[in-house]
Every structure is written in C-alpha cells, then in structure tokens.
C-alpha cells in the first residue's frame, strides 16, 4: 500500500463568488515509502495548494488525501496528528522562528505532540545533527544566527517531529551555491536514514535533477507528468513547451540530437552527460591514436 495517496483531489477558492478559481483540479497521485519526489511547476500551478492539502492545512473542496489508506479528514479532530506525520517546511522557514533559544524553537513541534521531556530532548538533538547544527548553537538565540543557520534551525524544527513524509517548499530559495548544496544533502540523508518520503517543491530544475528519484510536473492545477526523473527529463521538449527550463546539459543533448548525432540515453546532470558522451568522443581519440 502506498503511504500517501490522493483521489480526485480538488481545491476551488472563492466558490460562488466572481473570484472563483480552481487551484488544484482532480489530482490522483501515489507516493511510496522512501520516494524522493521533486515537484515542479510555475507560480500558480497549484504546488503550494497541493502541499497544504497533503498535510491537512487546507481542506480539499472535493476528493481525498489518504495517509496509510485512511482519509485524513475522516475525523477532523485528528487533523493535528496528521500534521505531525506529514511535516511541512514552508518557503523561507526562518521567518517563523520565535523562541528564545534554538533548542526551544526546535522543541516546539515535539512539545505540541505531547512527548516526554527526555523524548523531546533526544529529538531536538537528533534533528539538530541532521542539519549539521553545532550543538553550541542550540542555546543561542535563533535571531543571532546567520541566514543559512537560521534556515537549518527552522528545518530541524520540522524534522524533530520525525515526519514519515517530509514536504519542503523551495528549501534552497535565496541561498548561495554552498548553502544550497548543504541543505540538499541533509534532506537526502534524512530520507535515507528514516526511509521517509520526501516531496521537494522547487523552481530549480538543477536541484531536482540532482536529488530526486521521481518528478511531478504540475501545470494549471493538473498533473502534467509524474514519472522517474530520467523519464521526465527525457521529455525535455514538452517541459520546454510548458515554459519550464530544463537543465543546460539536457539542452545540449537536445542540440546534439537535432544535429542528427545518435546520443544514447538522456542526461540531466553533468556526471551523466560525461559518461554518456565519453564513448562517442573517445572513439575519435582512439582512432587518432591508431
């Protein structure tokens, strides 16, 4: 059984007003345990509405979200426990920090879960280690940290709830390449160690190409593609026609094919491109040598 499933999931805002707008329209999706799914689409494609429906922050106007086979809205009183199992990290999460110390901020979620002091303590420390946060910083005020550190504290605040499903909205927005690489690696580590399902919403095709196993492309509130990363990036022309920028290496492969060169397979990272191209280019080197 899939850990998370949506059935005909629909969200319409402002029903029966002149501003009526369907943000998500009849989506059927399944997410398996351990999946790392990249979610891409334009602003307004329905990404953030979908995210907030998956953890019960928004109630769908039609359709269902099934967590472990149970409709999360079957008992609305239980919706808070759904939010602990489906952790959601918003964009610029550092803007929600509020406690006097990082420790207490990270402990906010676990405390709301009603856990014991010892359990909270373990969870805070483990979560801090996932995001490589210096234990010394735990007793500092989150407002004294650097931008990158603040973001890591905020992400740890969600990880401390040990969600089985972790959803992140643009966790790398505004970070420089160094900060971005750190966060992406930590997200992957959390998935690997907990066999958690991770949904990563991103505008960056390069980020998604680097860490996702599967890619979900949303367009106008509907699923345009949902497949393995390789299969999605192999439809580079379609992605371009949806106005999404494919990674530069993928475009290079498209260009080579347009020139009639039989490039085998597809590439969306530099490493893949090197190994796909090398045999063809080496032949030349070898032939010259002969």
């Amino acid at each position: 059984m899939s850990i998370l499933e949506t059935r005909d999931l629909t969200m319409t805002y402002g029903i029966k007003t002149p501003f009526e707008k369907t943000a998500v329209c009849g989506i059927d999706l399944t997410f398996e345990k351990g999946d790392l799914v990249g979610i891409i689409g334009h602003t307004g494609s329905g990404k953030s509405t979908l995210m907030q429906m998956l953890n019960g922050l928004l109630k769908p106007t039609a359709g269902q979200v099934l967590l472990d086979g149970t409709d999360i809205w079957a008992d609305p009183k239980n919706i808070r426990s759904v939010r602990f199992r489906v952790g959601l990290v918003f964009q610029y999460p550092e803007h929600q920090l509020f406690e006097e110390t990082c420790y207490r901020d990270i402990a906010f979620g676990p405390k709301n879960m009603g856990l014991s002091e010892e359990e909270i303590d373990t969870r805070v420390r483990v979560a801090a280690s996932y995001v490589d946060l210096d234990p010394e910083l735990l007793q500092k005020s989150p407002f004294d940290l650097s931008g990158g550190e603040k973001r890591r504290v905020a992400i740890a605040g969600v990880l401390a709830m040990r969600p089985e499903i972790l959803i992140l909205d643009e966790p790398t927005a505004g970070l420089d390449p160094k900060g971005r690489d750190t966060i992406l690696n930590q997200i992957r580590a959390y998935r690997d160690e907990n066999d958690a399902t991770v949904l990563l919403v991103s505008h960056s095709m390069e980020d998604v190409a680097r860490i996702a196993d599967k890619v979900l492309v949303l367009d106008h509130g509907q699923v345009a593609m949902y497949d393995t990363t390789e299969a999605v990036f192999s439809r580079a022309e379609e992605l371009s026609s949806l106005g999404l920028s494919v990674p530069a290496v993928t475009r290079i492969f498209m260009g080579l094919r347009a020139k009639g060169l039989p490039v085998g397979g597809n590439a969306y990272t530099v490493e893949q491109a090197v190994s796909a191209l090398l045999p063809h280019l080496r032949k030349g080197g070898d032939a010259d040598a002969v």
Binding site: A248, L261, H280, L281, R282, G284
Partner: peptide, 26 residues
C-alpha cells in the same frame, strides 16, 4: 578525460558546436 575541447565554452549552443565537431571528427 582527455577529450580535446576548447576551455572557454560558455553557452549551450557553443557546447553543442564544440561537441559535434569532436564527435564528427571521431
């Protein structure tokens, strides 16, 4: 890896040209 390509390739188009040249030479 020993492929002789120019060092100053910047754009997708330039990369396609350079790679195609090496490929066809091969």
């Amino acid at each position: 890896q020993g492929v002789s390509l120019p060092a100053d390739v910047l754009t997708v188009e330039e990369a396609v040209e350079a790679l195609a040249a090496v490929w066809e030479g091969a």
